[in-house]
Nucleic acid binder design. Sequence first.
DNA 1: GTCTATAACAGGATAGAC
DNA 2: GTCTATCCTGTTATAGAC
Lengths: 203, 203
Amino acid sequence: MAKNRNTEQKIFDAATELFLEKGVDRTSVRDIANKAGINLALMNYYFRSKENLFDTIFSSLVKKNSEDLIRILNSDLELYDKIRQYVHVYIDMLSDNPLLVSFVMAILHRSRERITEMKAITSLYSTEAFTKQIIEEGKKGSIRRTDPTQLFVDMLSLIAFPFAIKTLIRDKNSFSEEEFQAFIEERKRRVPKMLIDSMRPCS
Amino acid sequence: MAKNRNTEQKIFDAATELFLEKGVDRTSVRDIANKAGINLALMNYYFRSKENLFDTIFSSLVKKNSEDLIRILNSDLELYDKIRQYVHVYIDMLSDNPLLVSFVMAILHRSRERITEMKAITSLYSTEAFTKQIIEEGKKGSIRRTDPTQLFVDMLSLIAFPFAIKTLIRDKNSFSEEEFQAFIEERKRRVPKMLIDSMRPCS
DNA sequence: GTCTATAACAGGATAGAC
DNA sequence: GTCTATCCTGTTATAGAC
């Protein structure tokens, strides 16, 4: 009982790392048991099945990483500041966990039909409050009239995609890990600027 | 011998479709044989192994879809026109094959260490000619001084990522397939505008 | 709660008949 | 070139001893 929570956590941690690193399909429960330093059977004891372990991990990852972002979208920040902060926080989050994008996209592709994961992922995506803000400011004329869906897709694309093609970027430009970090750091300024420029009323 | 080329092609086609649809790891050689309407053993007869079949298909897909794009980058089009056309052609290509993005990204994640695939994918990415054009026009002052790598990553992100999260976009906005198409169609105008605005010399 | 042992099966690949 | 039959390995999952 002393080890109860401990073992469960070790399995959870090892599996999380492996799922992110190698992908769910290429990770066997033996891999997980080895990495966690526990017995093969314990995975089933604590998590019933690999699929169930995966669901648990996936929900946890999404929840952990989306809460801050949703809070920003729903805050009463001025629009441009909101965008700047959203981009900043999102990029920092992905810098800490660069494999997250590929992972979520693999799941998105893998479970196109499965409701559970879709619902979870959908929660990552925009919010009522933000959409309304875009539309109302468009009516007021403080920004150009902008399709909120297009804007949000632009924003997500510019934030997330570079992490998905990290290998490619590093390889093509012979970037060291530090150089890649600097490249990403620069995007914290660049991306909000682009987005904001696209909605400036002047034209 | 009459059926020679034919059978090989049937295997190739069936496997391509399945790899794109379900991913390489979740596609078994039995699936491929079934879909192709041929015998299990014939896959090995023609392609030696599943891995080799995959390599063949992958190279073919990359080559088929990258040639037009590279030609545009290397053409002597005026910069803004080049960007407009690149975006246009790329988006059309992905509209015809929306699963391509997820597929390539899965491979990118899966084979971070493998040279062969990396080399192939790298060829998708920018060109000398384009990079030079950006730098020289920056020096001339006809555009703002722009990091070609950042610009290219912006461009790829805005073009490709929406296809990777197609399910998410459709789900969240309750888009029909036609509405999604219209959404993407709109991006053929929107994306070049954003990119070009970001490099206009004024500001 | 933790272990060993094993069931039950799916996967890729090949030998050999035709 | 195409088929059947089969091998072998690796996989998830569980029964049952401790």
